[in-house]
């Protein structure tokens, strides 16, 4: 057994998972290097506005994470990508984009997810029709406190399309991204808070409200905010001469096709394995699943373990996860790392 304070750990990815993992490792006495590809840490959280289920301002999460990595044992290095990992005896060498070879005793991969590029669903016209936006674009609008159509008008009728890039064989993503339903509910309510007289519609296939307080949020959105839910997957979107959007959908519960004109349409983009993660998987021989996320060594007892001793996973690089789950998963990764150190 070796004491943790002799140990050097590299964490790849400076989003919620990586930052939490780095913080916990440091508290346990490890010497941590956190590599972040972008120029700032924070990952996707920093692009988000309020978080479900309790409308917490995401800045609070950012502040919490910043405090976690503000530790003498942690070196945060931004603008650096991990190109590949190689085993060298019990050590793991990280080859970085800057040509360095960093030695470590263990690695936590926390490369997170990429948002599905909405333009790949051609029939929705993202990137073509001016008022088709993605859920991420809407968050930026919330952050700027200005929800406007491309022509500067305030939208009065807003639609949300669930499952964009998820549960869709056409884009080779069969899995459910798990968070977009509740995000749509949250965003729909948020829109109503910003634009009191707006009519807001969600087009869904199934309302997957499987998290703590999600169903309650769904009910509140109906009761207090009058959000209207229509069960049907939008099949196509087009634009009329006034640049309003026309959606075609079957109201499957009423059993008839439905047509609606909207001022703005929000696509609930799903989560995909990040490009960075994908590159690492290829260069380092890490296993990925059918959904292209990292495949953990065991789905029940080893969701933080890779099949390579000393390489661990944290957060949404293994499956879509919300922030709460990501933070728990990161902590669990640290517990596995400690266990590993005790046993080598």
């Amino acid at each position: 057994m070796l004491k943790a304070d002799k140990r050097e750990v590299v964490v790849i990815g400076g989003g919620a998972a990586g930052m939490e993992a780095a913080g916990q490792l440091a508290k346990a006495g490890c010497i941590v290097t956190l590599l972040e590809r972008e120029s700032v840490t924070g990952g996707h959280v920093k692009n988000w506005y309020h978080l479900f289920p309790d409308s917490r301002n995401s800045d609070e999460v950012i502040e919490y994470l910043a405090r976690q990595v503000n530790h003498d044992n942690i070196t945060v290095r931004t603008g650096v990508t991990a190109g590949s990992l190689e085993k060298n005896g019990k050590s793991i060498i990280i080859n970085t984009s800057r040509g360095e070879r960093i030695r470590s005793d263990a690695v936590i991969v926390a490369t997170g997810f990429d948002l599905f590029e909405s333009r790949r669903k051609e029939e929705y016209g993202y990137g073509i029709y001016d008022n088709v936006i993605s859920s991420a674009d809407l968050e930026m609008m919330f952050r700027k406190d200005s929800i406007k159509r491309h022509d500067g008008e305030t939208p009065r009728r807003i639609g949300f399309v669930h499952c964009v890039g998820s549960r869709d064989a056409k884009v080779n993503n069969l899995y459910c991204s798990k968070l977009c339903c509740v995000t749509a509910v949250k965003q729909a309510m948020e829109v109503k808070k910003h634009i009191g007289n707006a009519s807001v519609y969600c087009f869904y296939m199934d309302m997957r409200m499987g998290g703590a307080l999600y169903e309650e949020l769904y009910k509140e959105s109906q009761e207090k905010y009058g959000i209207i839910y229509i069960r049907g997957k939008v099949s196509e979107v087009s634009e009329n001469i006034d640049t309003r959007l026309i959606v075609k959908v079957e109201d499957t519960l009423a059993g008839r096709p439905l047509r609606m004109e909207l001022d703005m349409l929000v696509l609930m983009a799903g989560m995909e394995m990040s490009e960075g993660g994908m590159g690492l998987a290829e260069s380092s021989g890490l296993k990925t699943g059918e959904n292209r996320f990292f495949a953990p060594a065991d789905h029940h007892f080893g969701t933080n373990k890779s099949t390579v001793a000393g390489i661990f996973y944290a957060g949404a690089c293994t499956a879509p996860m919300n922030i709460t789950e990501t933070i728990s998963h990161a902590r669990a990764a640290v517990a596995d790392v400690m266990d590993y150190f005790r046993n080598i």
């Binding site: 296939m205 997957k233 939008v234 099949s235 079957e250 499957t252 096709p257």
Partner: peptide, 22 residues
Amino acid sequence: IECGCCSATCTTGNFIRFSLRE
């Protein structure tokens, strides 16, 4: 999965009762 995409886009279902999903 009974999503209704086919029937929403269907040329036939526009005018007469016909939903492939159904």
